[in-house]
Amino acid sequence: MSGEPEVHEEFEARLKAYEGLPAAATGVGRDLVNEPMIRHWCEAMGDTSPAYTGPDAIAPPTMLQAWTMAGLTHRPERTAAYDELLTLLDTSGHDAVVATDCEQEYLRPLRPGDRITFDSVIESVSARKTTKLGAGYFVTTRTDVRAGGELAGTHRFRILKYAPAHRSSKPVERRPRPVVNRDNAGFWEGVARHELLIQRCTACRALRFPWLPGCNACGSPDWDTVAASGEGTVYSYVVMHHPPFPAFEPPYAVGLVELAEGVRIVSNVVGVPYDEVRIGMAVRLEFRRYDEELELPVFRGVGP
């Protein structure tokens, strides 16, 4: 939508044309008025009134609208006119909705066993309004609820269809920073040079990864490094679906990659759909930059 007033006026006129048209026709309550739904309502509201229990129970009058609700089912009673009006608002960017007003009159109590029917009319569509939530249009409907053909209550309902003013564009999340200390600083210096360095014990020649202060095999604290060739295979993997962490878009595959040198490293497998990563798949090292200060070794799938 443009911000031009005459454009709003033309759009408003299109919306106004729906005033007076039915919004719902010959709706039928999905459930008979019933004790379990009354009890669940009272539980939620903390309402302990004895009027809503026992052989002479009535439904809480404020449940009037609840009996007309479709829940997760479709709404055959909704008219094409009302669908069109809502679609017009949705497609013009006013796709968020909030209820603002509810006015109900109760003419006769509803009791367990009553089957309600209802009809609804589009009473009014407002001019464009700017609200704290965003700019939009108030749509007011009026519903008559009947039980056994007799008017039991009326229900005027106003919603605001709006274009959210503070639509949260996803904030740019950064990956967590690695903890760099004196025992692993050499590894990260290697990454900075695009080398994946494996520690090697200078006493017994055993390779080790991740980096540790001493040798697992012989206990020697002396070491040097060898640069990994970059060839490897997927030794095992998991697919992360849930929970989502900031900066990570599930689902994604986390691989335990066995390097050609024999040690294993946990990293992302990239270039392969998460559900096509397989044990034994050939992968090759590459370095991927995630932000201005974080670059990480990852493994690209290169073969079956």
Binding site: W41, A44, M45, G46, D47, S49, P50, A51, P60, P61, T62, M63, Q65, A66, A99, T100, D101, C102, E103, Q104, E105, Y106, P109
Partner: peptide, 26 residues
Amino acid sequence: ILTTNGLVGRYITDHFGPRAQLRRVA
């Protein structure tokens, strides 16, 4: 809004007792 409506109704009938009949809630 339906919960708010229910709580407002409860507030009034809690006060006026079980024989009170809600006629209108706006």
